[in-house]
Design a protein around this nucleic acid. Structure first.
Lengths: 234, 234
DNA sequence: CTTTTTTGTGACATTATTGTTACAAACGCT
DNA sequence: AGCGTTTGTAACAATAATGTCACAAAAAAG
């Protein structure tokens, strides 16, 4: 539940308020929008983790907004829960077809709403994964979340793992510390650039084995940053 | 939806008929039951892949039947979709609590019903149990619903059993707490993610024996979740 | 051969994450 | 109703991970 942003889209401010208060008490971070226009702006701006979308809206219908969201790359993956009237069955079905993740009928209990929000957020979390990468005896498997050197598992912290994963999927290219921070740490964290050096150091250390020092695969590019290259050093 | 069997439990034969015809046209294989007694027999007999359960029934209530199904090993894993009246919100919540996988309010369209059936089947599409799993001395037998370590039976609660079963049938893969909640608890249960940790702890404890600590097969993946791995722990 | 700049390294305080225990509520059973 | 189990959570303890710093080493520049 940790600081997830939820956008509430409803033209009735009374309902928005009620829902917002409930959700904020439950630990969510809320924003409100009164119409589709407003909603769209806030979505682009704040990138909510989930959208509660009222179906009955004055200008653009909820359906139309949902369609637009599903077409756009920015909003394509944001889960949407529709709020529909009890007997508005047609809209519910249309909504599910267009890509709503769930719906809840008004009036609803706070408990039911919370349960559905939780479930949807859980389902849409971490869609990551990919294929295993292997470079001259060093293998990273995103499924098991593990790194092997000559089939022996290596130990390393989460950041080192992410760093290595990034390098192995972006070989033979130099990255500045800033770029690495963006890619591995995330673009909205502020830490010293030197922090990268320390983690590089930790990663290199974790890559040392009796058989071979895979740390040498990470090369420092003076004045620039670091590069992962299959051709070791000499 | 290749030859999936669906059991329709409803006391009104008209509704059963209607639903059956619709589902059969959609390629499902249907059976009907008019009451809980009847339903229970057919479940044991035919092992349906999914149960559509009407909530309003003359003798035993739907809730009671669902409880019974969830208690019994044979029917524990069969997904259930409740059919509820429009405004019967209390029952819906109770139903989800007891272990229904989804609900749909009457009257419903065939389209909506189909959508929900497919969603539920998709979620529960697991390599059906039946075969025992064995990993380096630890054996889980889904038929007898028991776990053995070096042929000695181990004691554990239902949740720990389900957790272990999931792990043993999905080895070498890291799962987030959310994913485990979805898979082991069910996708519409609202519990804290930390609950997973506690059950992991209970499971690990249950896996300790004099001969060997099988709890170490469950590895924590920091920042991510847990993984069951037969090999490579130090 | 100095001086300056850049990177490597170990130590440390602080946070985050996970392990563990205790407890109360809910449930099934008798 | 009474009893033992199971479950979810909160609270606290134990660990692991993180970001920074100070200083050493290494390159580059002059």
């Amino acid at each position: 539940m940790a600081n997830r942003k939820i956008l509430i889209v409803d033209d009735e401010s009374a309902i928005r308020e009620m829902v917002r208060i409930g959700l904020e008490m439950a630990g969510f971070n809320c924003m409100e929008a009164a119409d589709a226009q407003d909603a769209y702006g806030k979505i682009l701006d704040a990138r909510p983790d989930l959208i509660l979308l009222d179906w009955m809206m004055p200008n653009t219908s909820g359906l139309e907004l949902l369609r637009r969201l599903r077409r756009d790359d920015v909003s394509r993956d944001i889960p949407v829960i529709m709020l529909t009237a009890k007997d508005d069955e047609d809209n519910r079905i249309q909504g599910l077809d267009v890509g709503a993740d769930d719906y809840i009928t008004k009036p609803f209990s706070s408990r039911e709403l919370l349960a559905r929000i939780k479930a949807v957020l859980r389902r849409s979390a971490d869609p990551e994964d990919g294929d295993a990468v292997e470079v001259s005896g060093l293998m990273l498997d995103p499924v098991s979340h593990r790194v092997f050197a000559e089939s022996r598992p290596l130990e390393m912290g989460p950041t080192e793992y992410k760093l290595l994963k990034f390098f192995m999927t972006h070989q033979e290219r130099a990255y500045s510390r800033g770029q690495l921070l963006d890619q591995v740490w995330g673009s909205n964290v502020y830490v010293e650039e030197r922090t990268v050096d320390v983690h590089i150091r930790r990663l290199r250390k974790a890559l040392e084995t009796d058989i071979r020092d895979y740390g040498t695969l990470i090369q420092t590019v003076r004045g620039t940053g670091y590069r992962f290259s299959a051709a070791g050093l000499e």
